[in-house]
């Protein structure tokens, strides 16, 4: 939580950082979370910040 907050604090959009606890038995939860994460990140578009531009 502290880490997610700190990432957000310095300008990473909240929807780019996700945490989840999924047991190996929770396959449906895994699929749901992955879909949710990809949808959220796609909605934001490519990341502009915190990327090293190739020298």
């Amino acid at each position: 939580m502290l880490f997610k907050n700190l990432m957000e604090h310095m300008g990473i959009e909240p929807d780019r950082v996700h945490f989840s606890w999924i047991s190996s038995a929770e396959s449906t939860k895994f699929v749901d979370v992955v879909n949710e994460v990809t949808a959220a990140v796609k909605a934001l578009g490519p990341n502009k910040n915190f990327i090293i531009k190739a020298a």
């Binding site: 604090h9 310095m10 300008g11 909240p14 910040n49």
Partner: peptide
């Protein structure tokens, strides 16, 4: 001061740092 940053939009936060 922390709250002042918290209120900014992500890009503004990034620029601030």
């Amino acid at each position: 001061d922390v709250r002042r940053i918290e209120e900014m939009e992500p890009d503004k936060k990034y620029g601030f740092f």
